[in-house]
Structures are given as C-alpha cells and as structure tokens.
C-alpha cells in the first residue's frame, strides 16, 4: 500500500480486542484500511506486502463470512492462506485448543486468525504461539475486526465518528460485537446507546460507557447510526425472550421504528441477518442500509490489520513489541 512505509508503526503484536487500543491505534488502522479499500476496487487487487508470509485461519466455530473475509484479505496481500476448520463435535470444545495451537505453531505461521466459542480463547492461544494472533471472535468477549470495520464504514459515510450518536440494538448480553463496538466508539468519542430488553443486557451495563434504553422509539431518537445485532434462535429456549413475534414487535427494526432516528441515519448489521426477527427486509435492503458496504469494508480492514501486525519494520527495529 502507498502509505505503508510512512504510516506509524502499529505498537501491538496481536489484535486480541479493542481493549488496549488507543484512539491513535484505531485511527492508524482505519487510515490504512482506507488505502486497502482503494486497492480492492482496482481490477488488479493483489499486492505483495505479505508475500511469503503464512496465514492460518483457525475456526472452531463455523463462520463462512468472517473466514472468507480474512481469507480474501490475506490473499490480496499475497500471503499463503490456510483454512483450518476444526470439527468441534468429535472432541470436547477447548480440549484441543492448546494442542492445535502447538501443532500449528510448529508449522511456523506468521499470523493466526482464531474464532472460538470461549471467551479468552484468542488470548490463551497468543500466550502459546510465536506468531501474531488476530481474534476473529471469542465467545461473548470481543470481535475487534468487526468493530473496526463498522468504524471504517461509519467514518467513510459520515466523515467522522466523534460526537455521533450510535444506537446498538438487540442481544447485547451475548454479543462480542456489542462489547467491541462499545469500547471502540467510546475511544473515538461517539455517544453510545444500547437498546434491548433487560434480559438481554449484561449486569453492570450502566457502567460500561453507554446510555441504556429498553424502548426502540426512545433509544433510536435522533440517532446517526442504528446498529442491529443478531438474535440467535436458541435464546427463546433460554427464556431470554418469549417469542420471535414478540421480539420483532418490540425490538425488530422496521420502517416505523427507524423513523425515530435521523433521516440520514445509517442502518448496520454484522450479519448474518435474521430477516423478520431483528430487522425487516425492507429496511435491510433499503436506502439507509450500509450492510453490504460493511462486508466490503471488512476485507479492507482485515488487510490493514494483518499488514500492520506483520509490518516488516518491526523486525528491523528489533522484533515484536
């Protein structure tokens, strides 16, 4: 990328979460991602900045979207990309994590991208391997590249993040996307709201740097960005909410509820969407939706992250920080 040599050095070896990143770190990644967007839009999409580097995608939870986004990002940077989908059915979850990590480590990869159902799995892996680790989602903890790509989308659409009002709606309790976004948006000076039924809010949410709403009309009022979260169907079985129909009535985003937000409010969703559960199709496909753009930004942002972590200047300056 053009500014790769002039861009400041990213001061972290791993990307395990938004926690621990400064506003400057985030800006740096977003700036680099802007250049990556340009590359991705050219007909010749390949660069060579990660040529000869090996990237392993280690997905303990199936996620076609995130995995292919990371794969594409690595390939556009010229890396050799290997996908490891770990059958979680045969072995007890987690039991193989360290073993798998040690095996992969012996193959001397440069970067490991991990998705796991347990919070802290990426951090655990990072302690055991010699390469950079990117957290592609660990339990209900963090999903940093999602929050960064959301920020990139917002910044490109709105020209800024600071002082925007962002309403995050839905299953906050189980959402790593929500946690990473709350951290990132606060670091960048946005006003963050969460909107959800109380059963889907974590204990202590009031102290997490957000304004809490249990009502969409009030939670969306005057919002610049409406960020919807996926509601997993198994939440009904856990009695978090009684039914899809009731949930959609109160918390599903439809034209009526969206009216409360600003006219030019962005509608976002990390995907995959449950149409008719948390979002109506007319909104998902409507003019305010930037959901497809988020997917495009995802590839660019992940290119920026991996390139920043594997910055060759790091070796020149005496190894990993």
């Amino acid at each position: 990328m053009n500014d790769a040599q002039t861009s400041p050095l990213f001061p972290h070896r791993h990307l395990l979460g938004i926690k621990g990143l400064s506003a400057q770190d985030i800006e740096l990644l977003l700036d680099r991602a802007d250049s990556a967007v340009a590359i991705s839009r050219k007909s010749e999409k390949k660069t060579s900045s990660l040529r000869g580097r090996t990237q392993i995608n280690l997905f303990f939870e199936a996620s076609t979207r995130t995995q292919s986004s990371f794969e594409l990002a690595g390939k556009r940077l010229g890396a050799d990309v290997m996908n490891m989908s770990v059958a979680s059915s045969s072995v007890k979850k987690g039991e193989t994590l360290i073993d798998t990590a040690m095996t992969l480590n012996a193959m001397r990869p440069d970067i490991l991208v991990i998705r796991h159902s347990s919070a802290g799995a990426a951090a655990l892996l990072a302690q055991k391997v010699g390469c950079s680790v990117v957290n592609a989602g660990d339990g209900a903890h963090e999903h940093p590249t999602q929050a960064l790509l959301d920020a990139l989308t917002i910044r490109r659409e709105k020209g800024k993040i600071a002082r925007l009002t962002v309403s995050i709606c839905g299953d906050i309790l189980h959402s790593r996307v929500a946690r990473s976004n709350i951290l990132l948006l606060n670091a960048m000076g946005a006003r963050v709201r969460v909107v959800a039924p109380s059963t889907l809010l974590p204990v202590g949410i009031e102290q997490m740097g957000v304004e809490v709403f249990r009502d969409m009309a009030r939670g969306l009022k005057g919002a610049d960005v409406v960020m919807m979260l996926r509601l997993q169907r198994e939440r009904m079985a856990g009695s978090f909410v009684p039914s899809i129909r009731e949930y959609f009535r109160h918390f599903g985003l439809d034209a009526e509820k969206l009216k409360a937000a600003k006219d030019d409010a962005l509608v976002m969703h990390p995907g995959p969407m449950n149409r008719g559960v948390e979002i109506a199709s007319e909104i998902a496909d409507g003019p305010q939706s930037v959901i497809e753009k988020q997917v495009e930004m995802g590839v660019a942002l992940r290119m920026a992250v991996m390139e920043a972590l594997l910055d060759p200047r790091r070796n020149e300056t005496g190894g990993n920080a």
Partner: peptide, 13 residues
C-alpha cells in the same frame, strides 16, 4: 462472579 467485570470479559456470571 456476576458483575461488571464478568460482563466485560464476556463470561457468564
């Protein structure tokens, strides 16, 4: 323990 600390860690309390 259930509380803010567990909530940030994404661990059930």
């Amino acid at each position: 323990n259930e509380g803010l600390f567990a909530s940030w860690l994404g661990l059930p309390g």
